[in-house]
Design a protein around this nucleic acid. Structure first.
Length: 509
RNA sequence: GGCCCGUUCGUCUAUCGGUUAGGACAAAUGGUUUUCAUCCAUUAAAGAGGGGUUCGACUCCCCUACGGGCUACCA
């Protein structure tokens, strides 16, 4: 077999918003494709018409755009040579392959009703046998293997409902190589005759997946571990269809687990875990329930990419901060871990903090300005930018900009009670008034001059400057913590600083 | 229940038979910042259990336990 161009795909179902585990799967596919100069395609697997969720497909596209993982082929990103990329639109092309399997004796028609299937399963369970439609039980069911030939023909001609099932050998080892886990062996005696083609004329995931990966010339299937159990079935399909030579390599990713312990992260976790599980905010079209997104929670796309990359993979060095380009260069499937990873909110926060610091003040200023406008506050962009420069290091999320900077835009009317209780005494108002008077005399209202004036006033009043500093800060901002005081006062400007102190004198007792 | 996959500090992980088992997040302590955050330093913290193989196992094999996934005309 000659070297084929690397082609990978991300193939989600539009049954709801994509969760971060899905984003990670997409990311690994993307990194692998870019690393090898290959193609990354987005295919929408919507073979289950009953589970269609309006908006989900668009959500997937928007999410990939936000994190910057852009497919170069597929729905939402321009059609390539293998369009369409939505399985519902490929419906017509699956039937011929299903027929091929039937003709070759690898699949058969089954006419059992749901009730009959249930009855079979109940019966088997009652006798403590594995309840599956397989080489043994199919002989007792209504299918083209048990029905007389003309009976099958009659039913098909009468358009009676049927499905097509794969005909698995009774006992056969199926062995395949997983790029992450090594050789995996499963015996067909533990598998069942999976439905390949449904009575509504749509293929099931298994069939559509194999046909699409084959026709789209996919070389590597990188997907979640939940698919590992069905991989042997997929291998058999490639074999029965005569495509084993070009069968893609498989890599089954470890799952993202809930931080509290049990189970994999799922869409239904929504906001229950205390952190977003979705890249973007999502409103359920049926219940109108809103689930938070990383973007809206103030995460930076670059941080999300970086932290997701490290949940189940590492470069083998101590470097933890990676640009996408660096990830592409460093990424290898061999270094993906085998076990599930619990999502760690603290680490996520740390990653975001690292990235927030790298953002230019101008860019943060744009964000803060949006938050200000949401509060109906107009402010000068240069001033906003300077504020961002002062508080940048204190925040972990861009949405915290307003929380940490509000007193720069709104002069405080309430004051931290703990500090007041501890520091305010009968002399405090006198000192503040002295400061006001002295500040009035400053021509160049810059940090050094302000600090000098402050020290003079404190000395005159025979108070250690450090004993008054907290009170001075609270008088100016209302809160106990913040950026360096004199720099901040300079930024407020002389008039605002004096206003603030005058209000403090009047308000605090 | 059956089948498959997995198991190193609280968390993410390094280690590809010989190491004082390393790093990061979180935690604690000290310093810096006359505040908070930052930053710096230090500390505490791990090979699930039992058998093998080997001169020597975290590393290879087996068993057990535990965790996870799958077990639909869902993906």
């Amino acid at each position: 077999m000659t070297e084929r161009k690397v082609r990978v795909r991300f193939a989600p179902s539009p049954t709801g918003p994509l969760h971060i585990g899905g984003v990670r799967t997409a990311l690994y596919n993307y990194l692998f494709a870019k690393k090898h100069g290959g193609d990354f395609i987005l295919r929408i697997e919507d073979t289950d018409q009953g589970r269609f969720v309006p908006g989900a497909e668009n959500y997937i596209i928007e999410s990939l755009k936000w994190v910057g993982i852009e497919p170069n082929e597929g729905i939402g990103f321009g059609d390539g040579p293998h369009a369409p990329y939505r399985q519902s639109e490929r419906k017509a092309m699956y039937k011929q392959y299903v027929d091929q399997l039937i003709d070759a004796g690898y699949a058969y028609y089954a006419f059992d009703t749901p009730e009959e299937l249930d009855a079979m399963r109940d019966r088997l369970k009652a006798s403590n046998v594995d309840a599956k439609y397989d080489a043994i039980t199919r002989s007792a069911m209504k299918n083209s293997l048990t029905l007389p030939e003309d009976e099958t023909k009659r039913r098909l001609e009468n358009n009676e409902a049927y499905v097509v099932r794969i005909k698995l050998p009774r006992k056969e080892e199926v062995k395949f190589h997983d790029e992450i886990r090594g050789w995996v062996t499963v015996n067909t005696s533990t598998m069942d005759d999976k439905v390949l083609y449904k009575s509504d004329g749509m293929p099931t995931y298994h069939m559509a997946n194999i046909v699409d990966d084959y026709t789209m010339q996919i070389t590597h299937v990188i997907r979640g571990e939940e698919w590992l159990p069905s991989a042997p079935l997929h291998v058999l399909l490639y074999r029965y269809l005569g495509w084993e030579e070009v069968m893609p390599k498989f890599a089954h990713l470890p799952l993202l687990l809930k931080p509290d312990g049990n189970g994999k992260l799922s869409k239904r976790d929504g906001d229950k875990l205390g952190f977003p599980v979705f890249p973007l905010e999502w409103q359920d079209p049926f219940t109108n329930e809103i689930s938070s997104g990383y973007k809206q929670s103030g995460y930076l796309a670059e941080a999300v990419v970086n932290l997701l990359a490290f949940l189940g993979w590492n470069p083998g060095t101590t470097q933890e901060l990676f640009t996408v380009q660096e990830l592409i260069e460093a990424f290898t499937i061999e270094r993906i871990s085998k076990h599930g990873a619990k999502f760690d909110q603290n680490k996520a926060k740390w990653y975001n903090q690292q990235y927030v610091r790298k953002v230019a003040d101008e860019v943060l200023a744009q964000e803060l300005n949006k938050q200000l406008l949401a509060q109906n506050i107009q402010a000068d962009m240069l001033y906003i930018k300077q504020v961002c420069g002062l508080i940048k290091e204190k925040i972990s999320f861009v949405k915290e900009l307003w929380d940490y900077s509000n007193y720069f835009f709104v002069e405080p009317t309430q004051y931290d009670e703990t500090v007041i209780k501890k520091r305010w005494n009968e002399k405090s108002a006198i000192v503040l008034n002295d400061l006001i008077a002295r500040f009035e005399t400053i021509n160049a209202f810059v940090p050094t001059n302000i600090e000098q004036a402050y020290n003079e006033v404190l000395a005159k009043n025979e108070i250690l400057s450090k004993d008054f500093l907290q009170l001075f800060r609270v008088s100016l901002t209302g809160v106990a913590g913040g950026p360096p005081l004199f720099e901040m006062a300079a930024l407020f400007g002389k008039q605002s600083t004096i206003n603030r102190l005058q209000r403090a004198v009047k308000t605090i007792h």
